[in-house]
Design a protein around this nucleic acid. Structure first.
Lengths: 116, 116
DNA sequence: GCCCTATACCTTGCACTTCTAGGGGTCCTT
DNA sequence: AAGGACCCCTAGAAGTGCAAGGTATAGGGC
């Protein structure tokens, strides 16, 4: 069976997922990727070349803030947390996502006769 | 009330929607855009600058084939239909989409304590 | 000391898609 | 003639994800 290949997230989706994980509590980049893989049961796989640039983008836009702290394993890592703006943004993105998948659902459910 | 702004489809989604509409029967580009807007209740809005390049890409990849025919209104238009390969591809894309939104759903449903 | 693995962060440059902003042309109504 | 709806197309800008590569610490084995 397929070991579940890379998911190739549609553009824009990655931000939503990252923001959501961070919303649950301060966490560093490496752990974000692990968490996404774990919770999505391997469907969502985030290469570091996608993850870190995304984190920096979100930080530059003022949606995230970061502090260096020590991890459980004794190493230094950059822990991200949501700013107020980031939390607002997450809410909006989540709503947009829901609206989108509803719309796509309608389209995919179209049948030969089905109009509206 | 929101006049429902443009949806800004995540990358890759447009192909899926286009393929789905065409799967229901031969249809020309302009009508595809109308249909997507209509069925999605205005959430999905496809600018022509996105639509036509997408159609050409899909055609070049052998997923679509096209013929010029006359529309009901008496004008010439390029009617697209799915090739066998295109139909296969649509099935795969639809399955991927489902897998993706399930995975994203799991992630968005995560709570403070929730792991997997 | 040296190598290897796992953890943890980072950057550069490319490929790709979408959108903006335009360009055609036909048919019908005003 | 003017304007709108229909119908096709392209070039360039902008944004995002990916592959590939680099840095550094900690621990185990030799």
């Amino acid at each position: 069976m397929t070991p579940i290949p890379r998911s190739d997230l549609p553009q824009g989706t990655l931000d939503l997922l990252i923001l959501k994980v961070i919303a649950l509590g301060p966490v560093h980049g490496y752990a974000i990727a692990r968490r996404l893989e774990e919770v999505s049961r391997g469907v969502v796989q985030v290469p570091e070349g996608s993850l870190y640039p995304a984190l920096h983008r979100l930080e530059n836009r003022g949606l995230l803030a970061a502090d260096w702290k020590e991890t459980e394993t004794g190493r230094d890592a950059k822990f991200y947390r949501l700013t107020r703006k980031g939390r607002k943004h997450l809410e909006g993105e989540a709503a947009s996502w829901q609206r989108l998948i509803d719309a796509v659902g309608l389209i995919l459910a179209m049948a030969e006769g089905g109009g509206g």
